[in-house]
Amino acid sequence: MQKKHSLLEIAFASLKLGLTSFGGPVAHLGYFKEEYIDKRKWLDDKTYADIIALCQFLPGPASSQVGIAIGMLRGGLLGGIISWLGFTIPSVIILVLFASLYQSFSLEGAAWIASLKIVAVAVVAHAVIGLGKKLTPDRPRIAIALAAALLMLLFPSTITQLIIIGAGALVGFSMYAKQAVSKVQPFVISITKRQGIISIITLIVLLIGLPILAQSTTNDYIKITDIFFRVGSLVFGGGHVVLPLLEQEVVPTGMLSSGEFLAGYGMAQAVPGPLFTFAGYLGAMLTGVTGAIVATLAIFLPSFLLIIGALPFLGELRKRASFQGILTGVNASVVGILLAAFYDPVFTSAISSGVDFGLAAILFSLMHFWKTPAWLIVIIGVVLGTLLSFI
Results as ranks from 00 to 15, higher is better:
I204L: 15
G315N: 02
L338G: 02
T328V: 13
H5F: 09
Q179D: 05
V205Y: 12
V241I: 14
K133N: 09
P59G: 00
E249G: 08
W370C: 09
L43H: 06
L135H: 13
A321H: 13
L245G: 00
E34P: 07
R194M: 12
P345A: 03
E108K: 15
G30F: 04
W84H: 08
I362E: 01
G23M: 07
M1A: 05
T372I: 15
A169G: 09
K319Q: 13
P302E: 04
I52F: 07
W370Q: 12
L210H: 07
I299Q: 04
V250Q: 01
M267Y: 09
T348C: 03
G166I: 12
F390K: 14
S91Q: 04
F357R: 02
L363I: 10
L314W: 11
L162P: 08
A49R: 11
Y343M: 07
R194Q: 12
S349Y: 07
S115H: 10
I198G: 00
N219W: 13
L387I: 15
L327Y: 14
T88M: 04
V235D: 00
G336V: 11
L297E: 01
S157L: 05
V383D: 00
G239C: 06
Q161V: 08
K183T: 08
E316C: 09
G280V: 06
L286P: 05
Y343R: 07
G172R: 08
L97C: 06
T136V: 15
K133D: 01
A350N: 02
P61F: 06
F369H: 08
L210A: 03
G79Q: 13
K39L: 08
A13Y: 05
I224M: 11
T20P: 07
H28R: 05
V346G: 01
L170I: 15
S115W: 13
E247N: 11
